[in-house]
Write a protein that binds this DNA or RNA. Structure first.
Ligand SMILES: [Mn+2]
Ligand SMILES: [Mn+2]
Ligand SMILES: [Zn+2]
Ligand SMILES: [Zn+2]
Lengths: 123, 123
DNA sequence: AGATTCGTGCGAGTAAGTTGCATTTAAGTA
DNA sequence: TACTTAAATGCAACTTACTCGCACGAATCT
C-alpha cells in the first residue's frame, strides 16, 4: 500500500518525518529500533517517538520490547510471531501464523526467546 | 527445595542478601521486578541487580523484559509461558507447557502479549 | 594474625525514552 | 494565492531503570 494512502486513511497529516519513517519501515519489513535508523532519518528523537506512538495508536506499526531494553517497531503486515535470541539479541520474524487461542484473552503477539540457529551452532 | 541447598549446589556463598532475595522469590512464585520488592528487602539496588545477574547465570532465576521497560525475575520452576497485558501491563503465568518446537532453535521462554481477561471485560 | 577473596553500599554515570515550550508547517478557507 | 489555525517539530531539560568504580567489610585460608 502507498504511504500516502496509509496516512490519509487514518486522517493524519502527511509530514516529511512521517513519510521518511514509513518509507523505511515499509522497505525494511522487519523490527527496527530508534538506534537502527537514527542515522538514516532527518528528525529529532522526540519526533521519532511521537510519530511512532501515533503509528502504534493507529495500528500502522506494532512494537515490542526486546532483551536489550529497546523497543522495536515493525509495519503491520500479516500476523506473525518473533524469535529473540538471548545470546546475540537478534530478532527474527517467524512465518508461523499463530492459531494459539486462550479463552478470555486476546493474543496480539507471540514472542519466543531462546537460542538462535547461529548461536546454537557456535556452542 | 531449600534455599540453602540451592545456593550450595551452585557453590555460592549464602549471604544475608541472597537469602532474603531467594526467600521472596521462592514464596511469591511469580515474576517480580526490583520495584516490586525494594521496600521488602534490605539491600542496595546494586546488590539486588548483581545478585540477580548471578542467579540468572546460575539458572536459579529467569528474567524477561515487560512492556513497562522493567525486567521481571522469577524462580526457576516447571517450564511455563507468560502472558503480558498491553493495557494494564499485568503479567500472568500460564500453566501451559510449551510443546512448541522450532528446528535449529532452542526455545527457552514463550511470551504472549495482548489483552488480559480483566481488560477484555472492561472494553 | 595476616593475606586473599568475595560481597556490599554509596555515589556517580549511562542511555532509552519523555516532556515543556517556542517555532514552524500542513492543509483547510477565503 | 494569501490567511488562519491546529497540529507537528526541534531543542533542551528531565526521568528512570539500571550499571560501574571504588572503598569498606566479612568470610575463608594458612
Ligand atoms: Mn516481524
Ligand atoms: Mn511464571
Ligand atoms: Zn543468537
Ligand atoms: Zn490487562
Amino acid at each position: 500500500m502507498q504511504i500516502k494512502n496509509i496516512i490519509e486513511e487514518k486522517n493524519l497529516k502527511l509530514t516529511a518525518a512521517r513519510r521518511e519513517l514509513l518509507e523505511i519501515f515499509n522497505f525494511e519489513q522487519r523490527p527496527l529500533c530508534f538506534e537502527d535508523i537514527k542515522d538514516k532519518i532527518n528528525m529529532d528523537k522526540a519526533t521519532f517517538y511521537r510519530n511512532i506512538l501515533m503509528f502504534e495508536k493507529e495500528s500502522i506499526v506494532r512494537g515490542f520490547e526486546s532483551n536489550d531494553k529497546k523497543r522495536y517497531y515493525e509495519i503491520q503486515g500479516s500476523a506473525h510471531s518473533h524469535f529473540i535470541c538471548n545470546l546475540c539479541n537478534d530478532i527474527e520474524c517467524l512465518d508461523e501464523v499463530r492459531p494459539k487461542k486462550l479463552s478470555g484473552y486476546t493474543i496480539v503477539d507471540t514472542i519466543y526467546k531462546g537460542i538462535c540457529k547461529v548461536c546454537n551452532k557456535e556452542s
